[in-house]
């Protein structure tokens, strides 16, 4: 991978230039579809962008220097981590990547939840702490199926390189693995029925309760980018056609990502929020079952 390519991926597609507007688009789609399913009009499409600008324009609260630093650095880190993960997505498989980028991707995707947990604790609010605890418990619960699915895919493709995996993993493995990943999306994105970590009626905004103005804006951005990255990862893994022309690949990548947003929003609209223990049980049980199934298939199948 050349430096130019890497920069292109980080800054243009599927990185910054693509991801930020699409993050807002996805946030809007989620809100709009939810509204329509609930019989409401819903916000205009520029609403998430306006929200972001409005939050940016607010004066941050004065805080003790160390806390202020931590509370600014954590969302920045979350944004950066997600952007990095996005840059690794092999939308154009021949364009590069390196062996082991899967490991880096997993690590980068774990940064936002980790930052959220830390944010909950540094903000020194009891609701932040509760949200952080819940976030931590859930991330343990969903990490098992999430990682198992990715490991199964890697084992099936016999490679730790994302582009190889996305091209070569067998469908017998890919299917349960994709299902397991899809199951992990709602909790990673904190939407119903697994919106436990930011359950407004119980613990306000959870980990980000104490964040305000530009710091909150960054969290919102990080959240939108997580949508892009996670749906993007799923899209990349679900669409292996290696020899399709690059415009087609880009279009399909975007289409699958957006469709996934709609599905997630519809599921969220049709469900109530589960409790922490119930949500964790779903992942321990069904998530792990799918992940383990994928792994067993990957190992046993010739």
């Amino acid at each position: 991978m050349t430096v130019g390519r890497a920069l292109f991926q980080l800054l243009v597609f599927p990185g910054l230039l693509y991801a930020v507007p699409v993050a807002w688009l996805m946030l809007w789609m989620e809100r709009k579809l939810t509204a329509r399913l609930q019989g409401r009009i819903g916000p205009p499409f520029y609403q998430p962008f306006f929200d972001f600008v409005k939050l940016l324009a607010k004066r941050p609260l004065p805080r003790p220097p160390l806390q202020a630093l931590a509370m600014s650095a954590l969302p920045v880190l979350a944004v950066a981590g997600t952007l990095g993960a996005l840059a690794l997505l092999p939308v154009f498989p021949h364009s590069g990547g390196f062996t082991g980028d899967l490991v880096l991707l997993v690590a980068l995707l774990e940064i936002p939840p980790l930052c959220a947990v830390l944010a909950g604790f540094v903000s020194r609010s009891i609701y932040g702490e509760l949200g952080a605890t819940r976030e931590a418990v859930l991330s343990i619960a969903y990490s098992l199926p999430f990682l198992a699915a990715l490991v199964a895919l890697a084992a099936a493709a016999n490679s730790l390189s994302l582009s190889v995996i996305s091209q070569q993993a067998m469908w017998q493995v890919r299917l349960p693995a994709l299902l397991a990943l899809a199951l992990c999306l709602p909790v990673k994105l904190r939407v119903n029925p697994f919106s436990v970590a930011n359950a407004e009626q119980e613990i306000y905004a959870g980990a980000t309760t104490e964040f305000e103005g530009p710091r909150l804006a960054l969290w919102e951005l990080a959240h939108g980018l997580e949508w892009v990255a996670l749906t993007g990862l799923w899209a990349v893994l679900a669409f292996p056609a290696a020899n399709a022309a690059w415009p087609l690949r880009a279009v399909v990548f975007v289409a699958i990502s957006l469709a996934l947003v709609l599905v997630l929003a519809a599921v969220a609209a049709a469900t109530a929020r589960l409790k922490l223990a119930q949500a964790a049980r779903v992942y321990w049980l069904w998530g792990s079952a799918l992940g383990v199934l994928a792994m067993v298939v990957a190992v046993v199948w010739p």
């Binding site: 329509r36 399913l37 609930q38 019989g39 409401r40 009009i41 609209a269 049709a270 469900t271």
Partner: peptide, 19 residues
Amino acid sequence: NILGLISRNFRRDPATYRY
């Protein structure tokens, strides 16, 4: 059930107004 409910909502016009 809830699926019937949301699909009906989707087909119908929204109940809210635009200021």
